[in-house]
């Protein structure tokens, strides 16, 4: 599905890296023809994915995140794709159960909601353990109808 050259950014797994990653993704997305209307959704998906890595991938606090941005194709739809890679212990975020979004306030727990947003706001999302790396790849339709 992915095609073409990928742009890449590597930054420390720290909350200070969140905004630069989002800015990089917006810039690359624009170069690939992403609709500006997708901006807030892309920011959301990136935040949810990156904050998970920042909080859990490196218990000693030291490590990097690699983001790659590339174009893709799903049948006749052009996609903008991002992969987020860390070298933490194997963790498949897609293995979590979806939260109960109908539960009353008293029973609501926010755990799992970020991953649920990633699934809801993207066209495709895949997790892969590649050697010592976790790689989460997601794609969004460049110009949704």
């Amino acid at each position: 599905m992915p095609k073409g050259e990928a742009a890449e950014l590597i930054l420390p797994a720290h909350m200070d890296s969140l905004a630069p990653f989002q800015a990089f993704a917006a810039e690359q997305g624009e170069l690939l023809g992403m609709s500006p209307a997708l901006g807030p959704k892309l920011d959301l998906v990136l935040e949810e994915a990156l904050v998970n890595v920042i909080n859990y991938a490196y218990p000693d606090g030291n490590g990097d995140i690699r983001m790659r941005c590339f174009s893709g194709q799903n049948q006749d739809k052009g996609l903008v794709c991002f992969s987020i890679e860390d070298q933490g212990p194997a963790f498949d975020p897609m293995g979590r159960e979806d939260p109960d979004t109908d539960a009353p306030m008293e029973d609501r727990n926010i755990g799992g909601l970020g991953i649920f947003f990633i699934k809801e706001m993207t066209e495709t999302v895949d997790y892969e353990r590649r050697g010592e790396s976790n790689v989460l790849t997601f794609c969004m339709v460049l110009a949704p109808e």
């Binding site: 920011d43 949810e48 904050v51 306030m105 909601l113 970020g114 947003f117």
Partner: peptide, 15 residues
């Protein structure tokens, strides 16, 4: 813009 972190704060305040 609001993310799950924002919702977590909203829920905590509501409780």
């Amino acid at each position: 813009y609001i993310s799950s972190a924002g919702l977590r704060s909203v829920l905590s305040v509501a409780k």
